[in-house]
Amino acid sequence: NQASVVANQLIPISTALTLVMMRSEVVTPVGIPAEDIPRLVSMTVNRAVPLGTTLMPDMVKGYA
C-alpha cells in the first residue's frame, strides 16, 4: 500500500504548501504519492483543502 499526501490542517485556496501542512498516510483513494512531498513545497492549491483530505493531482497548480 502506497502512502499518499494528506492535509495536516485546513489549507486555504491559493495557499503555498509547506512541509507542516502535509503528512503521509495510506488512504483510499490513493492521491499524490508521499514521496512527492518535497516537490509540492511552494506549489499552491487551487481550492480549499480541509484537514484530513487526500491531496489529488488536480488540487495543486502545476503538479499534474
Score class of each variant (00 low, 15 high):
residue 21 M to V: 03
residue 29 P to S: 04
residue 55 L to C: 03
residue 24 S to R: 10
residue 46 N to A: 06
residue 52 G to M: 05
residue 56 M to F: 14
residue 12 P to A: 10
residue 23 R to Y: 05
residue 9 Q to F: 11
residue 38 P to Q: 10
residue 23 R to S: 06
residue 35 E to K: 08
residue 3 A to F: 11
residue 13 I to K: 15
residue 2 Q to S: 13
residue 46 N to I: 08
residue 12 P to H: 08
residue 9 Q to R: 14
residue 43 M to K: 09
residue 27 V to G: 02
residue 21 M to I: 03
residue 61 K to C: 15
residue 36 D to M: 13
residue 4 S to P: 02
residue 26 V to S: 10
residue 64 A to S: 11
residue 25 E to W: 06
residue 26 V to G: 05
residue 16 A to D: 05
residue 18 T to L: 07
residue 28 T to W: 08
residue 30 V to S: 13
residue 45 V to Q: 01
residue 3 A to G: 13
residue 53 T to C: 08
residue 55 L to R: 02
residue 11 I to R: 00
residue 6 V to H: 01
residue 13 I to P: 12
residue 62 G to S: 11
residue 29 P to I: 06
residue 44 T to H: 13
residue 12 P to T: 08
residue 59 M to Y: 14
residue 4 S to E: 00
residue 7 A to H: 00
residue 52 G to N: 14
residue 38 P to I: 12
residue 35 E to A: 11
residue 7 A to C: 04
residue 62 G to D: 12
residue 28 T to A: 14
residue 60 V to I: 13
residue 10 L to G: 10
residue 53 T to E: 07
residue 64 A to N: 14
residue 44 T to Y: 14
residue 45 V to C: 06
residue 42 S to N: 10
residue 25 E to S: 10
residue 35 E to H: 12
residue 64 A to D: 11
residue 16 A to L: 09
residue 39 R to H: 08
residue 37 I to M: 14
residue 19 L to W: 13
residue 25 E to R: 07
residue 44 T to G: 04
residue 16 A to Q: 09
residue 28 T to F: 10
residue 57 P to D: 05
residue 41 V to K: 04
residue 61 K to N: 14
residue 42 S to E: 09
residue 13 I to L: 10
residue 56 M to I: 11
residue 49 V to I: 13
residue 1 N to S: 15
residue 36 D to P: 00
residue 13 I to Q: 14
residue 7 A to T: 10
residue 29 P to F: 04
residue 61 K to H: 11
residue 30 V to Y: 11
residue 18 T to F: 03
residue 30 V to E: 15
residue 35 E to Q: 13
residue 10 L to A: 13
residue 19 L to A: 08
residue 39 R to L: 10
residue 61 K to W: 11
residue 4 S to L: 02
residue 51 L to Y: 14
residue 17 L to D: 01
residue 33 P to C: 10
residue 10 L to F: 14
residue 35 E to N: 09
residue 33 P to N: 08
residue 41 V to E: 05
residue 46 N to S: 13
residue 34 A to W: 06
residue 49 V to D: 01
residue 57 P to K: 11
residue 37 I to P: 00
residue 14 S to E: 12
residue 47 R to H: 09
residue 10 L to N: 15
residue 35 E to W: 11
residue 1 N to M: 15
residue 44 T to K: 11
residue 12 P to C: 06
residue 24 S to G: 09
residue 45 V to R: 00
residue 59 M to D: 13
residue 33 P to F: 11
residue 16 A to H: 11
residue 24 S to A: 14
residue 35 E to Y: 08
residue 25 E to H: 08
residue 36 D to H: 13
residue 39 R to N: 08
residue 36 D to T: 07
residue 47 R to F: 08
residue 54 T to S: 04
residue 34 A to L: 03
residue 4 S to A: 03
residue 64 A to R: 10
residue 9 Q to E: 11
residue 61 K to I: 14
residue 36 D to V: 08
residue 3 A to D: 06
residue 44 T to A: 09
residue 63 Y to W: 14
residue 14 S to H: 14
residue 21 M to K: 01
residue 31 G to W: 03
residue 53 T to S: 11
residue 60 V to L: 08
residue 49 V to L: 10
residue 48 A to M: 14
residue 38 P to W: 11
residue 6 V to Q: 02
residue 34 A to S: 13
residue 54 T to Y: 03
residue 28 T to S: 11
residue 29 P to T: 06
residue 49 V to Y: 02
residue 49 V to E: 02
residue 64 A to E: 10
residue 21 M to F: 03
residue 39 R to E: 07
residue 8 N to P: 02
residue 13 I to C: 15
residue 45 V to G: 01
residue 31 G to L: 03
residue 27 V to R: 09
residue 1 N to F: 14
residue 35 E to F: 09
residue 32 I to Q: 01
residue 32 I to C: 04
residue 9 Q to G: 05
residue 36 D to G: 07
residue 47 R to S: 09
residue 46 N to R: 10
residue 32 I to L: 05
residue 54 T to M: 04
residue 49 V to S: 01
residue 8 N to W: 04
residue 13 I to W: 15
residue 29 P to G: 03
residue 25 E to N: 09
residue 46 N to H: 13
residue 60 V to R: 01
residue 43 M to L: 15
residue 61 K to A: 13
residue 30 V to G: 08
residue 6 V to D: 00
residue 51 L to H: 14
residue 31 G to S: 02
residue 20 V to C: 08
residue 14 S to G: 15
residue 64 A to G: 10
residue 26 V to P: 11
residue 2 Q to T: 15
residue 30 V to A: 11
residue 2 Q to L: 14
residue 19 L to Y: 12
residue 15 T to R: 07
residue 19 L to H: 07
residue 23 R to N: 06
residue 38 P to E: 10
residue 35 E to D: 14
residue 31 G to K: 02
residue 3 A to V: 07
residue 21 M to S: 04
residue 42 S to R: 11
residue 7 A to Q: 01
residue 59 M to T: 06
residue 14 S to W: 14
residue 56 M to E: 08
residue 34 A to T: 12
residue 41 V to Q: 06
residue 23 R to V: 05
residue 10 L to H: 13
residue 33 P to K: 10
residue 3 A to E: 12
residue 40 L to T: 00
residue 51 L to Q: 15
residue 59 M to K: 02
residue 59 M to F: 15
residue 53 T to A: 13
residue 10 L to D: 15
residue 36 D to S: 10
residue 26 V to Y: 11
residue 50 P to R: 09
residue 3 A to Y: 09
residue 43 M to E: 04
residue 20 V to E: 10
residue 49 V to A: 05
residue 30 V to Q: 11
residue 52 G to V: 03
residue 37 I to F: 02
residue 11 I to E: 00
residue 42 S to V: 03
residue 9 Q to N: 06
residue 50 P to L: 10
residue 24 S to W: 09
residue 62 G to Q: 10
residue 1 N to A: 15
residue 53 T to L: 10
residue 57 P to L: 04
residue 59 M to G: 02
residue 64 A to T: 15
residue 50 P to T: 09
residue 3 A to R: 07
residue 25 E to F: 06
residue 16 A to N: 07
residue 4 S to Y: 03
residue 4 S to H: 01
residue 43 M to Q: 06
residue 8 N to V: 10
residue 24 S to V: 12
residue 17 L to C: 03
residue 40 L to F: 02
residue 14 S to T: 10
residue 5 V to D: 03
residue 33 P to W: 09
residue 58 D to M: 12
residue 33 P to Y: 10
residue 5 V to G: 01
residue 9 Q to L: 11
residue 50 P to I: 05
residue 55 L to A: 02
residue 58 D to S: 11
residue 39 R to Q: 11
residue 63 Y to S: 04
residue 19 L to N: 05
residue 55 L to W: 02
residue 16 A to F: 08
residue 16 A to P: 15
residue 62 G to F: 09
residue 9 Q to V: 12
residue 5 V to I: 13
residue 45 V to D: 00
residue 13 I to T: 15
residue 37 I to E: 00
residue 28 T to G: 05
residue 61 K to Q: 13
residue 55 L to M: 13
residue 7 A to L: 03
residue 52 G to A: 06
residue 45 V to T: 13
residue 51 L to P: 10
residue 3 A to S: 10
residue 42 S to I: 03
residue 62 G to R: 06
residue 45 V to F: 03
residue 22 M to A: 00
residue 10 L to R: 13
residue 14 S to L: 10
residue 18 T to K: 10
residue 37 I to T: 07
residue 35 E to V: 14
residue 51 L to W: 09
residue 19 L to V: 07
residue 9 Q to P: 01
residue 55 L to V: 09
residue 5 V to E: 01
residue 18 T to W: 03
residue 15 T to L: 05
residue 25 E to Q: 11
residue 36 D to I: 07
residue 18 T to E: 08
residue 44 T to D: 04
residue 1 N to D: 15
residue 10 L to E: 15
residue 11 I to H: 02
residue 1 N to L: 15
residue 32 I to H: 01
residue 59 M to S: 06
residue 29 P to C: 05
residue 36 D to N: 08
residue 46 N to M: 13
residue 46 N to F: 07
residue 8 N to A: 13
residue 14 S to A: 14
residue 57 P to Q: 07
residue 61 K to D: 12
residue 8 N to F: 04
residue 31 G to A: 02
residue 21 M to D: 04
residue 11 I to Y: 00
residue 57 P to A: 15
residue 5 V to K: 02
residue 13 I to F: 13
residue 20 V to F: 15
residue 4 S to N: 02
residue 1 N to G: 10
residue 64 A to L: 12
residue 63 Y to E: 03
residue 23 R to D: 04
residue 19 L to M: 11
residue 24 S to E: 09
residue 20 V to R: 14
residue 15 T to E: 07
residue 11 I to G: 02
residue 64 A to K: 12
residue 60 V to P: 01
residue 29 P to H: 05
residue 23 R to K: 12
residue 21 M to L: 05
residue 14 S to I: 04
residue 32 I to T: 02
residue 63 Y to M: 04
residue 63 Y to L: 05
residue 15 T to V: 12
residue 63 Y to A: 03
residue 50 P to G: 10
residue 44 T to V: 11
residue 7 A to F: 03
residue 6 V to I: 12
residue 7 A to D: 01
residue 16 A to M: 12
residue 19 L to G: 07
residue 50 P to M: 09
residue 58 D to T: 10
residue 6 V to A: 02
residue 62 G to T: 05
residue 4 S to R: 02
residue 21 M to Q: 04
residue 56 M to V: 08
residue 16 A to R: 12
residue 63 Y to H: 04
residue 58 D to W: 14
residue 13 I to E: 15
residue 12 P to D: 09
residue 61 K to G: 09
residue 45 V to M: 07
residue 18 T to M: 06
residue 62 G to V: 04
residue 64 A to F: 06
residue 52 G to Y: 04
residue 38 P to Y: 09
residue 53 T to V: 15
residue 27 V to H: 03
residue 34 A to D: 07
residue 29 P to E: 05
residue 18 T to Y: 03
residue 36 D to A: 09
residue 52 G to F: 04
residue 9 Q to A: 13
residue 49 V to Q: 02
residue 55 L to F: 15
residue 32 I to S: 01
residue 28 T to V: 13
residue 17 L to K: 00
residue 29 P to Y: 04
residue 58 D to N: 12
residue 63 Y to I: 04
residue 45 V to Y: 00
residue 50 P to H: 09
residue 54 T to R: 03
residue 24 S to T: 13
residue 44 T to Q: 10
residue 30 V to M: 14
residue 55 L to S: 02
residue 61 K to M: 10
residue 41 V to C: 07
residue 47 R to A: 08
residue 6 V to Y: 02
residue 42 S to T: 14
residue 7 A to W: 03
residue 40 L to K: 00
residue 27 V to P: 00
residue 18 T to A: 08
residue 27 V to W: 03
residue 42 S to Y: 13
residue 54 T to E: 02
residue 18 T to V: 06
residue 38 P to K: 10
residue 48 A to T: 15
residue 41 V to L: 13
residue 56 M to Y: 09
